[in-house]
Amino acid sequence: MAVKAAATAWRRTLPETTRLSVRKTYKLFIGGKFPRSESGRTYLVDGDNVALASRKDARDAVVAARKAQPGWAGATAYNRGQVLYRIAEMLEARREEFIARGVSEPEVNAAVDRWVWYAGWSDKIAQVHGSVNPVAGPYFNISAPEPTGVVAVVAPESFLGLVSVIAPAIVTSNTVVVLTGLPQAAITLAEVIATSDVPAGVINILTGDAAGNAPWLASHDDVNALDLTGVTNPELATELERGAAGSLKRVLRPPAEGIDSAAEPGLQPMTALLETKTVWHPKGF
């Protein structure tokens, strides 16, 4: 034993010093990557450096979302459900990170459960929301829901609220560009999403200046729907609705008293982002 100790005595042991902290910059989430803002701007949130999204980041996010949409809608409902469930799995494994960022434990639990709940809807929504219609003629008449396309979302400033606007939009085969004022939790969620087999561009998250960037998304010709759930200023909401009118966007405006994220969401958040396609198919041939 003594021989061995002598033989290894030349090895240096690490000095007992305090480690330098590894500081983290919270960057945007666009097209499956974590870029800094195109503008190079950042802002401080609770001592953390956070990328401050510009309107050009919003534009890039729309391009990424548009590119991803046909592939996501083309995946089977079963596959989409698996991906959403995978998000729940990864979120479950990283609960502590969210709690460390100030999200309460019950809220993290509720968020995980909400992902699981929506994951289950992926292959059921078409059955509940679609229909076979009786018609006076020799036809099968079938109404089937289809995704609206690219959805711009102003997310509420709670973690459960954030999950509750993203999940219904993507389970219905839309792709989203999310503006959030809850940067650390949202980008940590993006890290969960990035490791959950969600195709690049299906979910894009922009941090900072939601009020400044929302009008650009509202008036953007290549955005198909606008979810104003997180807009608390009624004047801004009206301005955004006016901007959206130019390209006939579908607009979700929450009731004035707000939405209780903790309550069971029901089908409305999903059906609001679906279009109905009705097919007349001749029978008897």
Binding site: R59, V62, W216, S219, H220, D221, D222, V223, S247
Partner: peptide, 9 residues
């Protein structure tokens, strides 16, 4: 026009 255009147009 002052707003972003889309390829659909």
């Amino acid at each position: 026009t002052g707003h972003y255009a889309g390829p659909d147009y």
